[in-house]
């Protein structure tokens, strides 16, 4: 690594990304907490979003407008396109009076996309989690560390992953992922 990533402007770091790595534009991200064993809650979420919230660990449920990533037994990250405010509002209305937490976290994390034949190797360099196809597949997500940055990793295709990291870690994580790919970029 030639230059210190924290002094390099963010745009310059992004420009140097090799094939197979990019930072996605903003997505709607809403953090939702509630009791999945309570059918009132589950039904209201379904009404508001069309989503059947996954109750199995590390699963992603896809809906029309957005998808829900399982984060913990009572926590999901809803991710979609469009307006965060309207998603928050429809959730607030549907869940009014219930014991829930709804937070617009669209700006909280940025999303990197890694793709191509080497994305599994990049993850093997970066995380202790088993991302082998036998253990992890499209429709799975997991909270882990990418190098030393907290992250959510979601598999979106056979050879494509989305990596959600906190914004403040984006230069570190972006530079790390780029570096992890270099070995393969040169040989491919």
């Amino acid at each position: 690594m030639a230059e210190t990533p924290w002094i390099t402007p963010a745009a310059a770091i992004a420009e140097s990304f090799p094939d197979g790595l990019k930072e996605l534009g903003p997505r709607v991200q809403v953090n939702l907490r509630g009791d999945v064993t309570d059918s009132t809650f589950v039904n209201a979420v379904k009404t508001a979003t069309g989503l059947d919230l996954p109750d199995a660990p590390n699963k992603v449920a896809a809906g029309k407008e957005c998808k829900a990533l399982w984060l913990s037994p009572d926590e999901w990250l809803l991710v979609g396109e469009g307006e965060a405010a309207s998603l928050v509002q429809s959730l607030e209305e549907a869940l009014s009076g219930q014991y829930v937490a709804i937070n617009d976290v669209s700006a909280n994390r940025t999303i990197f996309e890694i793709s191509g034949p080497y994305c599994h190797q990049v993850l093997m360099k970066s995380s202790e989690v088993d991302f082998h196809p036998r253990a992890f597949a499209p429709g799975n997500c997991v909270q882990t560390l990418i190098a030393k940055s907290q992250a959510i990793v979601e598999q979106v295709g056979r050879e494509m992953f989305h990596i959600y990291v906190r914004n403040s870690f984006s230069r570190y994580a972006g530079a790390w992922l780029a570096e992890a790919l270099v070995e393969y970029s040169e040989t491919s």
Partner: peptide, 21 residues
Amino acid sequence: GRNLGDWSDPVRVTSIHDWHV
């Protein structure tokens, strides 16, 4: 491994960081 120098620990910066630099 790669955890050397600037990689020893994540460096976190704000969205205004480039201006500060």
